[in-house]
């Protein structure tokens, strides 16, 4: 009946919000409080002087930490653990980095184009020694464009659940089951937007291709780094990072 469907959707929404709150890594209030706490010129120079391998290793470490929270988010999402293991892995392998990029907009200060990194806010120039200027610029541009949407915490929660539960990912075994869950999350998102008079957001969301392109760009840069520094990836990068991207 329409009523019980409504109750179901409300339960799902509450589950997504709770799962997100429990796994958001950094609280929005804390990020907000520290948004003008930027690295000093000397600190930026110290990062810029780091060898490329060390900077890559640091960034891989921070990405891996963020991904572990996304895995916990997925595990708490109602219905996710009912999918077969193949599909859980397919969705995480394809979507974890995309969710990290979406979550990053919370840790981004669009007023001075800085992102929270290792305890303070950092501009794109801090990442210079990575040797992938274009990728960093694209990620900063993406964060800037998401910030312009003024996402609420509930919107980030539901949007990231939808980025993760995507029935169009290749290699799914039970695509219909993923599509059902995706459909319920989609309804939950639309109900939330209607309730908060934010339906206009739907037309302004980034197209899925944009997230996919950023993730491919990351993998391409990793391959280029690997050619320059053979062996470093295996010796010094987190195993989960290697498993997902190498």
């Amino acid at each position: 009946s329409p009523t019980s469907a409504g109750v179901e959707i409300e339960h799902l929404t509450q589950n997504v919000l709770k799962s997100y709150r429990e796994t958001c890594q950094l609280r929005a209030e804390d990020l907000q409080l520290r948004r003008w706490d930027t690295f000093s010129r000397e600190e930026v120079c110290a990062y810029q002087r780091k060898p490329m391998e060390e900077m890559w290793q640091r960034c891989a470490g921070r990405i891996t930490e963020a991904i572990q929270y996304v895995v916990e988010f997925a595990k708490r999402l109602r219905g996710f653990m009912d999918l077969c293991q193949n599909d859980q892995i397919v969705l995480l392998k394809a979507g974890a980095m995309e969710v990290v990029l979406v979550r990053m907009c919370r840790a981004f200060n669009a007023d001075n184009r800085t992102v929270f990194f290792e305890g303070k806010y950092a501009g794109a120039e801090l990442f210079r020694s990575l040797g992938c200027h274009e990728l960093i610029s694209s990620i900063f541009d993406f964060a800037q464009s998401l910030c312009a949407l003024h996402f609420s915490e509930s919107e980030v929660a539901l949007f990231s659940a939808l980025v993760l539960v995507n029935a169009n990912r290749p290699w799914l075994q039970d695509q219909a089951k993923v599509a059902r869950l995706q459909g319920h999350l989609d309804v939950a998102f639309r109900v939330l937007l209607r309730r908060t008079r934010r339906e206009g957001l739907l037309a302004r969301l980034p197209p899925p291709g944009r997230l996919r392109a950023l993730c491919s760009q990351h993998v391409e840069q990793l391959q280029a780094f690997r050619r320059l520094h053979p062996g470093v990836l295996h010796a010094a990068f987190p195993p989960l990072y290697r498993e997902l991207f190498a």
Binding site: M81, P239, E243
Partner: peptide
């Protein structure tokens, strides 16, 4: 599955 050993392990470790 062997290729995704760590992801597997993380998924199987209860809701920690």
């Amino acid at each position: 599955q062997e290729k995704h050993r760590i992801l597997h392990k993380l998924l199987q470790n209860g809701n920690s």
